[in-house]
């Protein structure tokens, strides 16, 4: 029986947050209003997505103060808890791509790792920069014009309409196309959170002594390049691309992985 602790915690967080957003529109609650672009917590704490804010700013108009303060608060928060914790603990697309990934493993769709020439893990950083450039050229927040993340979120809150096709497309792409294609290669929001969370304090730590080299963690990890230390060194996962999802901790039968507070002075 595999441990599902962090997986269930994550699903509870994701679904819980989505429900709070949904309830604002449906029942008039005031706990979490708005969408990821900009939200209000408890009716007065502004929150805003840093990358969305950057796009709007690079498109050339000044934004209201609430959004700027909100983007700052979110940036500081994810600097501490790990940037891509957003991806695995909050983003609703994560449930779609995790499902695609799980099916991929069950259907044994990837026997060998495919190396795409122009679709690397770093492609998302290019897309992130390109998104800001396109925003400046066209004069609207470019990624927001097609972001499956907020399309899905607004779909949950206000109804999907034809927007559901974008979510299905991501699912199909990740299932039959590229493994971890969207979250791991393309999504510029994830790229931005990778950068924000570079020096985050909460990290997964590996204990080399306990490891039996079964590689279950690498199989389940959506960003397994960050687990380069497995069975080599007892260090923390310091790569910003780690989503702090904790699946590696769940599947490890040897207690060789666990969340820890990173020592800032050592910075290994």
């Amino acid at each position: 029986m595999k441990n599902l602790k962090y997986l269930l915690l994550r699903r509870a967080t994701q679904i819980g947050l989505m429900f709070l957003y949904f309830a604002t529109n449906a029942y008039g609650w005031h706990i979490l209003e708005g969408t990821f672009g900009s939200s209000k917590l408890f009716g007065f704490i502004p929150l805003a997505d840093p990358y969305t804010t950057l796009q709007a700013l690079s498109a050339g108009f000044l934004l209201g103060g609430d959004v700027l303060v909100g983007a700052l608060l979110i940036t500081v928060f994810y600097m501490v808890v790990g940037g891509r914790a957003f991806c695995s603990w909050v983003c609703p697309i994560n449930m779609v791509t995790d499902l695609a990934n799980w099916l991929r493993r069950k259907l044994k769709l990837d026997k060998e790792e495919v190396n795409y020439r122009f679709l690397k893990r770093r492609t998302r950083y290019w897309i992130m920069v390109l998104g800001l450039i396109v925003s400046a050229i066209v004069g609207i927040a470019a990624f927001e014009a097609l972001s499956p993340i907020t399309i899905m979120q607004r779909g949950i809150i206000f109804g999907f309409g034809a927007g559901i096709s974008v979510v299905v497309a991501i699912f199909l792409f990740d299932l039959f196309g590229v493994r971890n294609g969207w979250c791991g290669h393309l999504c510029p929001l994830g790229a931005a959170y990778s950068l924000i969370g570079q020096k985050s304090i909460i990290r997964v730590k590996h204990n080399h002594e306990a490891c039996t080299n079964c590689m279950d963690c690498k199989i389940v990890c959506p960003e397994n390049q960050v687990l380069h230390m497995i069975n080599k060194e007892s260090i923390s996962v310091t790569d910003g691309e780690c989503t702090n999802c904790g699946r590696c901790i769940d599947v490890c039968n040897d207690d060789a992985l666990g969340f820890s507070i990173r020592k800032l002075n050592k910075d290994s």
């Binding site: 529109n25 008039g28 672009g37 900009s38 805003a48 969305t52 804010t53 108009f61 927001e144």
Partner: peptide, 20 residues
Amino acid sequence: EEQFLDVCIKCGLCAEACAN
């Protein structure tokens, strides 16, 4: 309109306030 399309952060707070 031109300016609105950029500055609008697409959060939906207006629509929620309107409906509720």
